[in-house]
Computed example of a mutant assay.
Amino acid sequence: MPILILAAGASSRMRGADKLLLDVDGVPLLRRQARMAMEVSTDVRIALPPRPHPRYDLVRDLDVQTIEVADASQGMSASLRTLFATLEPEQSHAMVLLGDLPDLSDDDLRAVMSATTQYPDALIWRGATQTGKGGHPMVVAHPLFDEFQTLEGDSGGHSIIANHKGAVHLVPLKGNRARQDLDTPEDWAAWRAGRSTSGAPR
């Protein structure tokens, strides 16, 4: 199953820093996400901003496809449109993975993938918090690929999810990892402090 990583955003709330270049367990976050995806799939495609950009250097030596999003400034929908346009007609499913969820593990990705066979009547399978709030990763079935290629704005796939809410299956993952994105320096500081308290690597 292809894994589509969204990593073309501008990190606009980081006040000059690039969150995908920041260190997580000794590895830049984007490289960590790419390597995690490679543990699960041999087909990893990463949406990146227009070249030149330092994010390309983080994954240059990895066996992944880097997909340049020419209109990345238009928001997340531009990345989704671009990535879904690369999928071959024979693909039955594709996983969407945000580049900035540092607590996800390869086991989480496998759990959401496995749900596609356990609950085959759904069209969307989403990682969720233990309290039932939908997040990522998210697997999309082929009948919805065209809808993702026509998205507009920066709301990501929320409109598609809403239109097909009866065909969404949630897969609870540990804690808040399905939604734990880090958008500001304060988010990063709080996250690192929490990991330090729990004894996890920072």
Rank of each mutant, 00 (worst) to 15 (best):
D103H: 06
A78E: 03
R51P: 14
A72Y: 06
R15H: 08
P54N: 04
P172M: 00
Q33Y: 00
W125Q: 10
Q74W: 04
A34Q: 08
T129E: 00
P102L: 00
S79K: 02
Y56D: 09
G75D: 09
G9L: 10
T184A: 04
S196W: 11
Q149N: 08
Q180I: 01
Q130P: 01
S12M: 10
L87P: 12
D187R: 08
A200I: 04
L4F: 09
R179A: 02
R126V: 15
I124V: 10
G9M: 06
M76L: 15
S41P: 11
R126Q: 15
G194I: 11
A10D: 15
I3D: 03
V40L: 07
A200M: 04
L101D: 06
G134Q: 03
D146T: 15
A34H: 03
L87H: 05
S77V: 02
V112H: 07
S92Q: 12
S41F: 08
M38D: 10
D18G: 04
D106T: 04
L29N: 01
L98M: 11
M76G: 13
M14V: 07
E147T: 10
L29D: 00
L182I: 12
V140L: 03
L123V: 05
I5P: 05
D108A: 05
E152Y: 10
R13W: 13
A190S: 14
K133Q: 01
K133N: 02
R60S: 07
I46E: 13
A70M: 06
H136N: 14
M113N: 14
D121V: 05
V44K: 04
L87T: 04
T82S: 11
P54M: 02
V112S: 08
M138I: 09
A190C: 12
I67D: 05
A141T: 06
L104K: 03
A115P: 07
D18R: 14
D107S: 12
V40Y: 03
E147V: 12
S155G: 15
D183R: 11
W188N: 12
L6F: 15
